[in-house]
């Protein structure tokens, strides 16, 4: 693209930005000839989300308000809702300690509170630990080899996909084992300290 900025007599590096839009590097006619469909939606009226809000849009609904889905267990809900929504997901009801944390978070905090989300993230991590113990009791323990999909490193060219290919994520790859494994090592160290401390007291 030719620059629209012209040097002025005031000296090197001086200039002024003009009112005109920079000249396109390629004309509309050329783009239309080169790119299939160029400009097919040039008119905003052809764009399905214009205008953004379309009162009275056809949806297929044949009800004024939806029927209520039966509530088969006390369904947690955001306190920003006036009531339980007529339809809701029933996958994975809250359970265990993580479930207690989740129910407290929903009952106590609105979505505007950081504590709401922090408690839900905490519950997610507790759920993960609880589920690891449960899976051992059910004789189906987590298998880090198959569940992390790490074998695809071999089958899907892990080394050649990463190295010599200018990828920015490779630069901080070394951090991943520390950030993922670090909390487990720290937790193990803390448990060890507590156990040793109790033994000494005896």
């Amino acid at each position: 693209m030719a620059s629209i900025i012209e040097e002025r007599p005031g000296g090197p590096g001086r200039g002024a930005y003009p009112a005109e839009k920079p000249t396109p590097r390629e004309s509309s006619e050329s783009l239309r000839a080169r790119i299939p469909g160029w400009g097919a939606d040039l008119d905003p009226a052809d764009r399905p989300s214009f205008p953004r809000e379309q009162p009275g849009i056809e949806t297929g609904a044949h009800w004024t308000t939806p029927e209520d889905q039966p509530e088969t267990y006390p369904r947690e809900r955001s306190i920003e809702h006036a009531f339980l929504t007529p339809v809701f997901g029933t996958a994975q009801p809250p359970k265990g300690v993580s479930g207690v944390i989740r129910r407290y978070s929903y009952a106590r905090h609105s979505e505007a509170k950081f504590a709401h989300w922090a408690l839900l993230i905490l519950a997610d991590r507790v759920d993960s630990i609880e589920s690891q113990f449960t899976s051992i009791l059910q004789l189906r323990p987590d298998n880090p080899i198959t569940e992390t999909g790490i074998l695809s490193e071999v089958r899907r060219h892990g080394l050649s996909s990463r190295y010599g290919r200018n990828r920015t994520d490779v630069k901080h790859l070394w951090l991943d084992p520390i950030l993922i494994g670090g909390p487990y090592i720290l937790a193990g160290w803390a448990v060890l300290r507590v156990v040793r401390g109790k033994r000494r007291r005896r």
Binding site: R52, I57, R77, S78, F88
Partner: peptide, 23 residues
């Protein structure tokens, strides 16, 4: 849902009748 305040205006991704967990 197709009939809430948002669906009635075409904002289908913002339906208020299907997500109990968040508004």
């Amino acid at each position: 849902c197709g009939t809430c305040f948002f669906c009635a205006r075409g904002l289908f991704s913002n339906c208020h009748n299907v997500n109990a967990n968040a508004t």
